[in-house]
Design a protein around this nucleic acid. Structure first.
Length: 399
RNA sequence: GGGGAGAUACCGAAGCGGUCAAACGGGGCAGACUGUAAAUCUGUUGGCUUUCGCCUUCGGAGGUUCGAAUCCUCCUCUCCCCA
């Protein structure tokens, strides 16, 4: 094992807060692998880079020789969380949870070392509790304390409902820590409160309280809101390499540094050199961003594929050539004209006829580079031609 | 249990009998400028047809009216205050 300082140094990268760092030192000093806990919700489908921030941190612990413990929140998922904004979340069946968990692990395996990973389902202990056990657990915290939590207090003051069972979640999560005897728990900053509850419950159970490590929430492609599937501002770790590349190129220059810090292993010293290079105008921010994209794509595919993705990107967006893989559409026989509304809605290139009208009116549609201004045009003589919509939608028409 | 407020399009939020497919802001999309960056400017943002027009939408179900998102009744849900 590496020295304490070295370990702390690695662990510290990108974290917002370690509570408490000296406790962590003490724990490491014992020279026993730490049990590092991460709880996940098995409702999520595809993993995106936002999730990997904390998964990567867990992986770092694994690489330092510690024991990663992944808790699948199977019980939570089965209960179903109605707190969602507009509609009740579906209650998941046991089978759903198992299937989701399997899918989750499959993906998480791209970041974590599954061979040494310990996986627990919190339903294993929660389903055994009786009501008295639950009440006893509830008695470990107070309303005022729970209400302190930022998102709860925000919701409370803005008049958004908070359901009672939501109040219980922090305790459940904390109870998980007791059950797995966690030394460390990881989470996003939005989890701070829940992590702290774990400390209380462990203390109460006569355990040494866990060290809580919080990671920043990664902003998505819009640079404002956290990366999330529902905001559509995410990069999925199973995205096609060229999509990943394009998406990563669209983040702001500013945000790129956060991605560098949280999603790559590139030493911080090198990152700051890059920053200087841009300030001195020795390097172009676009190139720095391309390297970021290559680094990230390489983690999920390999470097060769990443470089190909860059080439494809440059071909299409720098040189303005057509991409290699354009969806194709075979015209129905007997057509004498091109009806854009029909073709584009039929192929799902546009959601509605109104949208097609708008796009054409605004000059967003072209055929082989020639702008279209009518909804319908006579069929071009060529046997194949490409319709382009906006910056990145293409459709090859074949007669 | 009592009293009050409220539910509007992706989100926030106006509208309070016709001129409402519904102001405004955000977001989205598109155009200009670019490096698919940021910032900025412009257009657009229910569906079908684009000329008129038609259809569906303002929590749900009924009702009053020539006519309702706007009035009435019931229902569902939320928030606040009191107990």
């Amino acid at each position: 094992m590496k020295s304490i300082d070295k370990q702390i140094n690695i662990i510290n990268r990108g974290v917002v807060q370690i509570c408490e760092e000296n406790e962590l030192r003490e724990k490491i000093k014992k020279n026993k692998p730490l049990r590092v806990k991460l709880g996940v919700d098995p409702t999520a489908g595809e993993l995106h880079l936002g999730f990997t921030v904390v998964l990567r941190k867990l992986r770092q612990f694994q690489d330092l020789g510690h024991q990663a413990v992944l808790i699948i929140g199977s019980y939570t998922a089965q209960v179903g969380d109605p707190s969602g904004r507009d509609k009740t979340r579906p209650q998941l069946s046991v089978d759903d949870v198992i299937a989701n968990a399997k899918f989750y692990l499959e993906q998480a395996g791209k970041v974590l070392n599954l061979d040494t990973l310990e996986v627990c389902y919190n339903g294993d202990w929660f389903k055994k509790m009786n009501f008295l056990d639950v009440i006893t657990m509830l008695s470990k915290s107070t309303v005022a304390r729970t209400l302190e939590r930022e998102d709860f207090s925000n919701r409370y003051s803005s008049g958004t409902p908070i359901y009672l069972h939501e109040f219980v979640y922090p305790l459940m999560q904390g109870y998980d820590s007791v059950m797995v005897k966690a030394d460390v728990e990881l989470g996003g900053t939005d989890q701070t409160f829940n992590l702290m509850v774990g400390r209380d419950l462990q203390r109460d159970a006569g355990q040494e309280p866990q060290v809580c490590i919080t990671m920043p929430l990664l902003e998505g492609l819009d640079g404002v809101r956290k990366m999330s599937k529902s905001y559509g501002n995410y990069v999925g770790i199973s995205d096609e390499p060229k999509d990943m590349f394009g998406k990563l190129m669209s983040i702001s220059d500013e945000l790129m540094w956060k991605y560098y810090e949280l999603l790559t292993e590139i030493p911080l010293s090198e990152i700051s050199k890059m920053k200087d290079g841009i300030t001195n105008e020795k390097i172009h921010p676009m190139d720095v961003k391309k390297n970021l994209a290559i680094n990230i794509i390489s983690q999920y595919y390999d470097e060769k594929i990443a470089i190909n993705a860059r080439a494809a990107f440059e071909k299409v967006f720098s040189k303005g050539n057509l991409p290699d893989d354009i969806p194709e559409f075979n015209l129905h026989t007997g057509e004498t004209e091109l009806n854009f509304i029909k073709i584009l809605t039929e192929t799902k290139m546009a959601p509605s006829g109104g949208e097609v009208r708008r796009l054409i009116k605004q000059g967003a549609v072209s055929i082989d580079g020639e702008k279209i201004s009518d909804l319908t045009i006579p069929l071009p003589g060529k046997n194949e031609f490409v319709i382009k919509i906006g910056k990145r939608r293409y459709l090859k028409i074949i007669k």
